[in-house]
Design a binder for these strands. Structure first.
Lengths: 335, 335
DNA sequence: TTGAAAGCGGTACCAC
DNA sequence: GTGGTACCGCTTTCAA
């Protein structure tokens, strides 16, 4: 039903090829013909069938984006960064959510691959890399964000998690905390990095490390943080500072502390990661480490586009963005 | 590079058609042939090129989703509901963000139309309906969510906004508020409905209506709420209850009240709309009206699929979901 | 039950 | 400058 190249060609008494060339700004078309064609295209509101074009060019101009959870503001913000860059280049974003389920993630990746997306951007929920081997087979470039696999080399963009942990912990130290605990994240690279940063900072003050793990990654990160914090509160002496894997965890921790009748930051200072935009609106505004998710999205998009352009596969890049401390009331004890 | 139907056909010494039929579970294929083909498909990890299929069937199995702002949890949740039902049907979701810009929105819609998405789901940022006329021309079904246009008939799914306003206002009345103000949203249908509900509830108690408008819809709804609340605080006597268009507005209002040295809910009770999942974690947990965004997404997806299936265009449906009151500390004065 | 041929709406290549 | 032709990978139709 929509207008086709052919329709315009017939109407104007030129060939399909000519119209096609005008469409793509080929130089070897007379100005007159070009104008006639353009004019008519506009009148008819012609839009090329991108599926057809994809079939012959082998490029769909689509990028697949797989996230563990769309509701998590971090991924939403990354998505926003992605669209910002991709829109300008005429690409569009196909989003799939894995709901933190490795199996689903794999299915979604295969689906996107069948769709022949030009590149894949994945924040992976899974611990093995078999899906990516698949992508590799089809020569579909992919970039990992936020979470990567130890021992599997791929293009990656994330924040420098070790620095995140270091920044956060040092901040607590500067605020006078002595017994600083870490509520650790699930088995992802980010958790490793942040823990390493914490350890490294703790070495500096010669205090023992106190680490508890959250049970799993799921949609109830705050509940996880609540439980973990209660574990910590049961220890004696209890910590006077806590660095949480992420803000939802930290929010849960805040609740636990509050429920125990203790005060933040006087009794226990708390800091999280993510700088969610409602952190400042919480009962006690939450200190955090900002990951600049939007920039992460933009960088990821740029990298993906570059990978699409370059025929030859270059050595995987690993881009680390700088985290930034955002101190708020939950950790500021010096005033 | 990826395996094609043809490759398998040649290898097995059958025709392309046969393989194609197996792929789509056609009945008229001998069990033996079918098994041989399926076997080989599995071995080679064959995935049909969906772009090619789209070209001939005229169906892309893609649904376009246009939102004003991905970061707004409401839309993220709707998206989640959408993917949940679309995934099962083999559809995928192409997301575009209009950043609350009508022009961008129009461009994105045209882009998606060029992509030949099978249906369009739009939470519109614009006040005219020209883009939808376009969609209509291409016979692409579309469903509006959350916001619709007065005088333009289209399939729509949203919450019953009048009831939202009524519920919220009645709740404030029950809590003993007398001078109840409404911070009104921008010029969208939702704002009209909620305002109407507010008015209707106010009629019942014979108190004057107090309405202020937020300047515009943008990413800083909380700042808008802050400003609007300050306007209200300047009036004399000031309100003792405020029903805000949405939760971000309400959060801004809370800050303004707090900054003015007043107490919530004792001095002023506040309620918003949206039931964002961090409402309960705020300095003062925010009362809200829940819109069940996830269900909204699921319903929208189902409706879109139905529209795609049914050849003939039926009369546009308007589905209204029931809102639900979620009272929290910001409005509970009776205890 | 199987397959040959046509064609979906474009683009690439090469002759004119 | 312009256009004929082949073809991208798949489905559809119809004949064998």
């Amino acid at each position: 039903m929509p207008v086709r190249l052919k329709d315009i060609a017939i109407e104007l008494g030129v060939s399909v090829v000519t119209v096609s060339k005008v469409l793509r700004n080929h130089s070897d078309i007379s100005t007159e013909t070009r104008n006639r064609v353009l004019e008519r295209m506009r009148q008819l509101n012609y839009r090329p069938n991108l599926a057809a074009r994809a079939l012959v060019t082998g490029r769909t101009n689509m990028i697949g984006f797989v996230v563990p959870d769309l509701l998590h503001p971090f991924f939403a913000e990354v998505a926003k960064g992605l669209t910002k860059v991709l829109r300008k280049k005429g690409y569009c974003l196909v989003i799939a959510s894995s709901e933190e389920d490795p199996l689903l993630e794999k299915q979604e990746i295969e689906h996107l691959l069948a769709r022949r997306v030009d590149a894949l951007i994945v924040a992976s929920a899974q611990s093995d890399s078999s899906s990516f081997v698949l992508a590799g087979e089809q020569k579909t470039p992919f970039v990992l964000i936020d979470r990567f696999f130890e021992g599997y080399s791929a293009d990656f963009i994330g924040v420098d998690d070790e620095k995140v942990g270091y920044l956060a912990t040092c901040h607590l130290i500067e605020q006078g905390c002595k017994r600083i605990a870490h509520i650790r994240g699930p088995q992802f690279s980010a958790a490793h990095g942040r823990e390493a940063g914490y350890r490294s900072a703790m070495k500096g003050i010669g205090q023992p490390e106190i680490i508890v793990s959250t049970a799993s990654m799921d949609n109830q990160a705050d509940a996880r943080g609540y439980d973990a914090m209660n574990e910590l509160l049961a220890t004696n002496p209890r910590p006077d500072g806590v660095f949480c894997f992420n803000d939802p965890n930290a929010i849960g921790a805040l609740s636990a502390i509050h429920d125990a009748g203790l005060k933040v930051p006087q009794d226990i200072a708390v800091i999280g990661v993510g700088n969610l935009h409602y952190d400042s609106l919480l009962r006690v505004p939450l200190s955090s480490v900002d990951q600049d998710s939007s920039a992460l999205g933009e960088e990821a998009a740029k990298l993906a586009l570059k990978l699409i352009e370059s025929k030859i596969k270059s050595r995987p890049k690993k881009i680390m963005l700088e985290p930034k401390l955002v101190p708020r009331a939950s950790s500021l004890r010096n005033q």
